[in-house]
Design a protein around this nucleic acid. Sequence first.
DNA 1: GGTCACAGTCGACAGTGTGTCGAGTCACGT
DNA 2: ACGTGACTCGACACACTGTCGACTGTGACC
Lengths: 243, 243
Amino acid sequence: MPPDQPGVAAPPDVAARRRAPSRGDRREQAILDGARELFEAKPLSQVTTDELAGAAGLSRSSFYFYFDSKQAVLSALLEGLSEELRTENDAWLNAIGLDEPALRQATVHLVAVWRTHGGLLRQAWRCERGDGVLATWRAGVLERGTRRIRDKIERDRAAGVAPPGPPTAQLLAVALQTCKNELLAEPRAEHDDAQMVDDLVALTLRLLYGVVPVRPAHTAGGAHPAGAAQKADARAALSTGAG
Amino acid sequence: MPPDQPGVAAPPDVAARRRAPSRGDRREQAILDGARELFEAKPLSQVTTDELAGAAGLSRSSFYFYFDSKQAVLSALLEGLSEELRTENDAWLNAIGLDEPALRQATVHLVAVWRTHGGLLRQAWRCERGDGVLATWRAGVLERGTRRIRDKIERDRAAGVAPPGPPTAQLLAVALQTCKNELLAEPRAEHDDAQMVDDLVALTLRLLYGVVPVRPAHTAGGAHPAGAAQKADARAALSTGAG
DNA sequence: GGTCACAGTCGACAGTGTGTCGAGTCACGT
DNA sequence: ACGTGACTCGACACACTGTCGACTGTGACC
């Protein structure tokens, strides 16, 4: 079924933009699909435009009709991912204090995204500086993410929920983001996803709030989303330390 | 003074290996010197063998007499650096518990090395996986460093000086190392060296021991190198825990 | 002084990858 | 049927890499 809804009258320019799901578009998609597989398997510099074109069933020069370079293909592929990476942790970032359930949920999502698009993300993360498209994308994602985490840290510090720092909020934000990415980029065989989530959550809490949240007597209380209680604990711990 | 000791009869092969400080060696050194500058300025992929040869005043094909490829040159350059990176923090790694003065000293050294060889290190750190020489060097340095930090964490945990973890000792070690490198690789204009050292030290303490070291009543006790006292504290804690 | 071996030098070549151009083909509305 | 624009491809020019064989300098040894 074509995606155009019959009976919906669209303005002419939109119609013009939508009228063609035809050959060219399908080819472009084929290039992207083939490229995704290739880039998952090997680094950008080892993928040739020849392969990229071949994977979509056309000649190398035809490839240039659709994309300016292999970097442009990678860029298009990454564009989709940056959205997926950004929306993942709104709940946590908007909360005040260590809202562990929200953090855990965001982390689960993050690990899942890396599990699915690992090869691509690894590649974008570990790119040569000066690698035009790659470096730009990386810098953009990093910058946006850092800004939001930094804001949260500053809010938490102002509210007295997070310890103030010799580590600047800015630096702490960069550290958190980069070390998470680096850990996710490292393909550790012995870490399954659940373990990785646990470790990343614990790491974040330690980095931002200084301490592992001391669970009073709940020895193995795993899945209960007791966010409010956690927050109260954190406040108590902090005020104890400060007073 | 030549390194050959007079009166010491060396075996012939060693003598043969040492007899020539002459033209070829000087050229090799010239290539290395020129390469260092070039690699500081731009990424590996943007430096051509032509430039490398030209910087040493010889033709491209002569360059291949000395090195197999530009990667080989970079590799030779990095070999010297790995030593410098490794020896920096022995004192801290061998201590038990948070020996802040030792940690600070190691960090000062680390920041200095990055200040001097930033371009090179940045490049080695952010290399494409699968970039033969680069990736191998990176992996080697990372692996050695991680192993040593992990051992320290495990020792400290066993001694009861460091909090046990949901973050595995292994993961914590990787996180610490990677995020330090990443922070050092990011050229932040607003961070001068002293600030960076402060932040890295604080970051390390928070990551490994959970808390910022609460200075009891020494409000502004900045520069006193009270290493012995710190170590004594740690030992006391250890013997308490073990006995 | 001759000459011999070898370290060192270089121009020329072949291979691989990139990006562009112009001529050709296909699909579709008129 | 036919023209227009979307699409395709072979051929070219360019940049970089690595190798080969011929050449030159230098020092050791007779």
